[in-house]
Design a binder for these strands. Structure first.
Length: 602
DNA sequence: CCCCCCCC
C-alpha cells in the first residue's frame, strides 16, 4: 500500500496565525453543520496533519460540492492550496480560530488510503486559546483597522500604509465570507451601484441603495439603509476598489439576485469602507457566468442569467401605458444571437432603452438578465440590478465578433422567443376588471381567466343533434322522415351525434357575465358526456332542466376569449369560455397572494 | 429593513 507524507505540525503553525505553503493533510471525518434558514449545507471537517488534528475546519461553498458528490471520502489525503484562518466569537466563550479551506487538490481518495495516517492527537487547547490567537493576530488587526477609518473627505482618503504581504494576509476572499464569522476584511471592486430608492410599506419606510462587490474569489451584493445611505453613497464609486469590513452577512434571496453567492451583506454603523488605490488591477472587473443562448430555453421564468451575444436587430423605441400602474413605459426590443445559432429577444427599459444604439450589430453582454416567458417563448429583460455592456473588451466578445462577421450574420437562427401559440400567461381577472378594461376590440380577441361560480346554466338549447361527420359539428335539420340534413356538408344521413352548447351565467364577488361554451367544456361542467345527456333526454324529455340545475353553484376556472362580433347589424361583445377547469387551488392562491401583496403595497 | 423592474 502507498504511504503518504503529511505536513506534520503544520496545523499548529496555521492555527497560531502562521503561514504554511500547500500543506498536505488527511480528512478524518466530517459532520454537517446545522445552518440558519434554507441555506446550503456546510460541513465541519476533522483534519489531521499526522501529528495533530482539529475538528473545526470548514470549506467554502464550491468545495462543499466536492463533499456532496463524494469526492472527499474519509481518509482522503489533500493538498491545501489556499486557506485562511478566522477568529470567531464563540458565543461568549473564548474566541476560536477556524480554518477555512478555499482551494484544495485531492492527492489520494480515502477509498484508496483506507486508514488513518500516524497517531494524531487533538491540537492542544493552548495552541488555540484566546491568548495565543490574539498574540498572533493582534498586531495586523490593530494596524489595519487604524488605517481603515472611514473618511468623508472624498479627495483625501487616508493612505493605506500596510505593506503588500501584510495586506494579502489580512484580506479575505469574498467566497470565504459566512454569517458564522465576522472578523474579515475584503478588498473588492464595486462593479455596480444602484440609485438611491425610497420605499414605504406596512413595515415602515426609508431609503436604500445596493451595490455589487467583486474580487478574485467571487462576488456579493451589499445593501445600505437609511442614514448609512448618506454616509456611504457618494464615497462609493463604480469600478473603484475598497477595503470593506464589519458588515452583516445573511442568506441571499435568490429570487432577487443574480450574483453567485449564498449570502449578501448589509452595511451597519460599524462598517468600515476605505478606498484602496494599491494593486487595484489584481481585483477583477465584472464577473460573468455566461450561458449560451440555447441554454436559456431551459431556464425557469424569473431566474437570472448572464448572457453575451450579437445584437442582430433592434426595434424602435416604443411608448405605452402599464396596465397595472398606468405609468408610461418605454422599451426597446433587441434580438440577441450567438454561435449556438439561437436567437432570443431582450427588452431594455426606460433610459437604457432610449440611449441604446443597436446599429452596426454591437456585442451585448448582460449580467443578471431576467428570464421571462411570453406566448410559450422565452425572453430576457434587463433590470435595475443588472449590468449591460456594449462591445466589452473581453475574449468572449472578440470571439463572437469574429463568428458573426465571418459566418453568423448569414445563418438562420432558431428563435427561442417565438410564440408557440399555447394559452400561456393568460391574465387572471375578476369581472369588475373585465368590465373596466373594455376588452374585445383586438383582432384575435382578448384572453383572460376568472375563477367564478355558475349562477345559471340554461337548459334551453343545451342539447342539439349534430352532423355525425367527425370534424363537422353543425346542427342538423330533422327531415321528419328518419333522415337528418347537414347544410354544411350538403348531405343527409340516417344518424346524428348529440352535442352540448353551454349558455351560462357565471359570477364572482365583483360581477357576473354570460358565457358560451363548446360541447367538450359543458361535459366537464356537467360531469356527463353529450351522449349520456342525449340518452337521458331520449328517455325523458324533461331531464335537461334537472341536469342543467345540477351545474349551478359549482366553481370553476373559466379561460375566456372576449371579442366584439357583428350580429344582426349590431356590434356586441361575445365571451366564449374556451376552457373550463376545476380550480387548481395552489395556482389560484399564487394569484391571490400577488393581488394581496399589491394591495398592501409590498 | 428592499425585492417595484412593467407591454404584447
Amino acid at each position: 500500500m502507498d504511504t503518504y507524507k503529511l505536513s506534520e505540525g503544520a496545523l499548529r503553525t496555521i492555527m497560531q496565525g502562521g503561514q504554511v505553503d500547500c500543506p498536505i493533510m488527511q480528512v478524518l471525518g466530517s459532520k454537517k453543520i446545522a445552518t440558519i434558514s434554507s441555506d446550503k449545507e456546510r460541513y465541519r471537517i476533522l483534519l489531521s496533519d499526522g501529528l495533530f488534528h482539529i475538528s473545526f475546519a470548514m470549506f467554502t461553498t464550491q468545495i462543499n460540492e466536492k463533499m456532496e458528490s463524494g469526492e472527499l471520502p474519509m481518509f482522503s489525503v489533500i493538498k491545501i492550496k489556499q486557506y485562511i484562518t478566522s477568529v470567531v466569537n464563540n458565543a461568549g466563550r473564548s474566541d476560536k480560530r477556524v480554518l477555512v479551506i478555499l482551494d484544495l487538490e485531492v492527492i489520494a481518495s480515502g477509498d484508496k488510503v483506507t486508514k488513518k495516517i500516524g497517531e494524531p492527537e487533538p491540537l492542544p487547547e493552548d495552541d488555540l486559546s484566546n491568548t495565543a490567537t490574539k498574540q498572533a493576530a493582534s498586531k495586523p488587526n490593530v494596524s489595519h483597522e487604524a488605517s481603515c477609518q472611514p473618511t468623508t473627505s472624498k479627495g483625501h482618503p487616508n493612505r493605506v500604509t500596510l505593506n503588500q504581504s501584510l495586506q494579502d494576509q489580512l484580506t479575505h476572499p469574498i467566497s470565504s465570507l459566512t454569517p458564522y464569522q465576522n472578523k474579515w476584511i475584503i478588498k473588492a471592486r464595486v462593479t455596480n451601484k444602484s440609485n438611491i430608492r425610497t420605499w414605504s410599506n406596512s413595515r415602515g419606510e426609508g431609503k436604500l441603495f445596493s451595490m455589487d462587490l467583486v474580487d478574485k474569489s467571487g462576488e456579493i451584493r451589499a445593501t445600505a439603509f437609511r442614514d448609512l445611505v448618506d454616509k456611504f453613497y457618494d464615497y462609493l464609486e463604480i469600478d473603484k476598489v475598497y477595503y470593506i469590513s464589519k458588515c452583516q452577512l445573511k442568506p441571499a434571496n435568490k429570487q432577487y439576485s443574480s450574483l453567485k453567492n449564498d449570502y449578501e451583506m448589509t452595511l451597519t454603523n460599524e462598517s468600515i469602507i476605505q478606498l484602496c488605490e494599491d494593486d487595484v488591477d489584481s481585483v477583477p472587473q465584472t464577473r460573468y457566468n455566461f450561458l449560451t443562448v440555447d441554454k436559456i430555453g431551459q431556464m425557469e421564468p424569473g431566474s437570472f442569467v448572464d448572457v453575451i451575444g450579437v445584437c442582430k436587430a433592434v426595434s424602435d423605441l416604443q411608448t405605452f401605458q402599464a396596465r397595472s400602474t398606468g405609468r408610461e413605459l418605454k422599451k426597446k426590443e433587441l434580438t440577441l444571437v450567438d454561435h449556438t445559432d439561437n436567437a432570443i429577444s431582450v427588452t431594455l427599459w426606460g433610459q437604457e432603452a432610449e440611449n441604446f444604439d443597436g446599429t452596426s450589430n454591437p456585442i451585448i453582454a448582460i449580467k443578471g438578465a431576467k428570464v421571462g416567458e411570453f406566448g410559450g417563448g422565452k425572453n430576457l429583460g434587463t433590470t435595475m440590478n443588472g449590468i449591460l455592456k456594449v462591445n466589452p473588451d473581453i475574449p468572449e466578445a472578440h470571439r463572437l465578433r469574429g463568428w458573426y462577421d465571418n459566418s453568423g450574420m448569414h445563418k438562420e437562427m432558431k428563435n427561442l422567443s417565438a410564440r408557440t401559440g399555447g394559452n400561456f400567461d393568460t391574465p387572471w381577472m375578476n369581472f369588475k376588471e373585465v368590465r373596466e378594461q373594455n376588452l374585445g376590440h383586438s383582432e384575435s380577441g382578448d384572453y383572460f381567466q376568472v375563477c367564478a361560480t355558475i349562477l345559471l346554466l340554461r337548459s334551453e338549447n343545451l342539447l342539439y343533434k349534430a352532423c355525425p361527420v367527425e370534424e363537422c359539428n353543425k346542427k342538423v335539420i330533422d327531415m321528419e322522415n328518419g333522415m337528418f340534413r347537414c347544410e354544411k356538408c350538403c348531405r343527409e344521413s340516417p344518424n346524428f351525434k348529440y352535442r352540448l352548447l353551454g349558455n351560462v351565467n357565471v359570477g364572482d364577488f365583483s360581477g357576473n357575465q354570460w358565457l358560451t361554451m363548446f360541447s367538450s367544456e359543458v361535459e366537464k361542467v356537467l360531469g356527463m358526456s353529450a351522449a349520456e345527456v342525449g340518452k337521458a333526454y331520449d328517455e325523458d324529455k324533461s331531464a335537461l332542466a334537472e341536469i342543467a340545475n345540477k351545474a349551478n353553484f359549482k366553481q370553476f376556472v373559466f379561460r375566456c376569449r372576449a371579442k366584439y362580433e357583428v350580429y344582426n347589424d349590431e356590434n356586441r361583445l361575445k365571451t366564449v369560455a374556451v376552457r373550463v377547469d376545476p380550480v387548481n387551488r395552489k395556482e389560484y392562491n399564487v394569484y391571490l397572494i400577488s393581488e394581496i401583496n399589491q394591495l398592501m403595497g409590498n
